[in-house]
């Protein structure tokens, strides 16, 4: 494992954690891919915090990151209520959304910039696993 953190369900915490995660992954990914990781993780953790808050749980969100042969993975587990299983299905690309909408871009960004998204919802344990290929798409 390259990095792990327990994050209080508070948006402010995300801005403390992400620069540390980026630093931990910096030997493994180029700057462009690190930008993608940071954007994706900001959106995913924001969603996790919102979900934990709306579920009324004070339990921490678990963030872990590691490396396998040709990719980096990052996993987020929140302790909120069970999320819909189709959360990441049939999402429009970010450039297909109405550019004048003020919200609703997060899931599209996650799906577009991660190389693979795996989501396993469960009551009290929604698990999102993201893969970023080394030398992957820009």
């Amino acid at each position: 494992m390259i990095y792990s953190a327990d994050i209080k369900p508070d948006q402010v915490e995300i801005d403390h954690v992400l620069p540390k995660l980026r630093l931990a992954l910096s030997p493994l990914l180029d700057a462009d891919r690190l930008d993608c990781v940071e954007i994706v993780l900001a959106e995913a953790l924001t969603n996790a915090v919102k979900h934990a808050q709306s579920s009324g749980t004070p339990e921490a969100i678990h963030l872990t990151a590691g490396r396998e042969a040709d990719h980096v993975w990052v996993e987020i587990v929140d302790a909120g209520n069970r999320s819909p299983g189709d959360l990441y299905d049939d999402l429009a690309a970010p450039d297909e959304l109405d550019p004048m909408q003020v919200d609703g871009r997060g899931l599209s960004l996650i799906a577009a910039l991660a190389d693979h998204v795996e989501f396993e919802p469960a009551e009290g344990s929604n698990r999102l696993r993201l893969r970023f290929d080394q030398g992957g798409r820009a």
């Binding site: 900001a42 959106e43 924001t46 003020v102 919200d103 871009r105």
Partner: peptide, 12 residues
């Protein structure tokens, strides 16, 4: 760094 909430604020 700017996330989608920051973008949304600008659009607003």
């Amino acid at each position: 760094f700017v996330d989608s909430s920051g973008i949304g604020a600008m659009v607003g």
